[in-house]
């Protein structure tokens, strides 16, 4: 979206993320916006047999994430989600990878128990909907 529309589109998503997790809990990675690096999930990479190369490619993104010190990385699409999740597992990095819709629904108190697959243990019990208590 940023690539076709420009950085302003990414700014709007920053507004959403900050509104959802709280400004103090948001950390931008470096570099960011149009200078950011691709995670290596796209272009069909995940469907190629070049797994070792895909992990090597992804090390740049892995280090960006680790340098933020954040426990959660929000991925914009499915390819990114799969790759960033896989990087965490492969390199035993320990961070969690989530879709933005998961955090929006969590913050609204409407995220059901079957919808928490990608949350870590520290968020599993947070904002449980009234009807599931």
């Amino acid at each position: 979206m940023r690539k076709s529309l420009g950085d302003w589109a990414a700014e709007e998503l920053r507004f959403v993320v900050k509104a959802v997790v709280g400004e103090e809990n948001f950390v931008d990675m470096t570099p960011n916006r149009s200078n950011n690096y691709c995670c290596g999930g796209g272009g069909g990479y995940l469907q190629t047999p070049y797994t070792e190369e895909r992990h090597k490619y992804g090390e740049m993104k892995l280090n960006q994430i680790l340098n933020t010190g954040a426990q959660y990385c929000i991925a914009p699409c499915h390819n990114c989600h799969s790759q960033i999740h896989d990087l965490s597992e492969h390199f035993e990095a320990g961070y969690h990878t989530v879709h933005l819709w998961t955090l929006i629904a969590l913050s609204l108190g409407i995220l059901g128990e079957n919808e928490r697959t990608y949350l870590g243990p520290e968020l599993q019990e947070v904002n449980i909907p009234e009807w599931e208590k």
Partner: peptide
């Protein structure tokens, strides 16, 4: 050359 499958065509190179 198999490298063409190891580039994700992310377009950052065009940007810079």
């Amino acid at each position: 050359n198999p490298w063409v499958w190891m580039c994700s065509m992310c377009q950052r190179c065009i940007y810079v």
